[in-house]
Amino acid sequence: MIELRGVGRSFGSRRVLDGIDLDVPAGQRVALRGRSGSGKTTLLNLIGGLDAGYTGEVRVDGRELRELGERGRARYRAETVAFVFQRANLIGPLSLLDNVMLPQLFSKARRTGRDSRARALEALDAVGLTPLAAAPAGQLSGGEAQRAALARALFAEPRILLCDEPTGSLDEESARPVAEILARLGSDRGLTVIVATHDRLISEGVQRRLLLRDGRLFEGEGEGGLPA
């Protein structure tokens, strides 16, 4: 359960988020829309524990993220939440399999090498990239790289998946499988998914749509929607 109460975030004199209230029950898939610069990434960063410079409260499963402290938030990012960004941010010299297993570097969960490898292959299978497991990540196409980023997120077995324009840099043909996988994973695995997107395909696969405008959050897609 994600709860935001009166959340505000400013950068200098610019107020990006202003008094955001939001409840996202566990397992819900949410699309977050808004113009560029409307604060979608900022909101995801707050929920993901990457940014603690907010006012108000951001609670996940009852824990206020700012109060977790630097180390607590790092652990939260390692164990509870996973990100997929607009750019896949794969580490080129590493193989695809190694990239998928990267979250293991910072996880407290002890697993044997074989367990990790099996789980990474399972995650690659879920996004249809098993045949490329040994390939250097730098050789993947944009669509493949974004699916690999999804596999990396799944490997960490998060409860919350935060996606920031996951198809933003892909053409429609490459974006379609990413959107399909995202919709399927959310429903199959019971993940709470929040996707900041302009992609109609992704918006169609979610249960709830939100709009960010002028630092305020609205339910629905139109500007006349009710505050969330």
Binding site: L50, E70, R71, A74, R77, P103, L105, F106, S107, A156
Partner: peptide
């Protein structure tokens, strides 16, 4: 920088 940001997003602390 982006790689470091990714590591932080994956759970790396400043010390890591």
């Amino acid at each position: 920088t982006a790689e470091i940001g990714l590591l932080r997003a994956l759970g790396a602390t400043r010390t890591d």
